[in-house]
Design a binder for these strands. Sequence first.
DNA 1: GCGACAG
DNA 2: ATCTTGTCGC
Length: 260
Amino acid sequence: MDTTIRPTTPSTTKHLVGNTVASRLFQTPPILWKGDIGEAKAQQELMESYINLAPLNKSLTLIAGADISCNKNSPVIYAGIVVLNAETLEIIERASVITETAFPYIPGYLSFREVPALLQAWQKLTTKPDAVMLDGHGVMHPRKVGVATHFGLAANVATLGCAKKRLIGRFDDPAPAQDSVTELTYQGEMRGYVYRSRAGIKPIFISPGTGMNYEDALSITRQTCAGYRLPEPTRLAHQYVNEIRVAHGEQPPTNNKGSV
DNA sequence: GCGACAG
DNA sequence: ATCTTGTCGC
């Protein structure tokens, strides 16, 4: 038998969630819109090499949801992050920021519009969660760098994407029953799941951002669904940023459901 | 060239 | 994302 005493510290950082290099590289400065998508695409290709899809390396005690709210004809955006107890789903802390975005919405480049603001809210948090759920895709993206992946690399935290619509790939509709799942494939590769969070309701699209694997992303989604189409982290973050928006004096979205 | 296209 | 009217169902 092997009785060798091994060191308690890993000999490689390859599978660690934390990557300070990537964090410093991608959180600042934000790429500004100059009418050319080239620079953003180049950064996505660089970010792709830093993605870590190893299993989540810690127990999930705190889970956060992040989202933004904005007006169609205004550069002002309201970004917010809500930290929840992953077990009870009760709110632990919230942080928000009102700022302006320097990038337009372009399918495939959403993160350059939202991440800078989300990072400001992230820095305000007193309690950092074990993982963050973003309103958008993770690696279920043409270059695997959706908003969840970009934010995870920049903030140095494990992330998953939970989107309401497809961006890429092919998939079969999951069965009508609640909790049904199918895989989405892009260029012959599995990129995530199509998950029926509620019976008979349009499914949501789940994929890891970075710092976790596909199974982690799906199990975290299942664990945080509370009877609504969207999981609590994302659902409450959405509610939160709209509250911030109203408190700032703007008109709430037309679809605004009753508060509280 | 044409259709698709997260928030 | 936001805008937007009515409609179907619990």
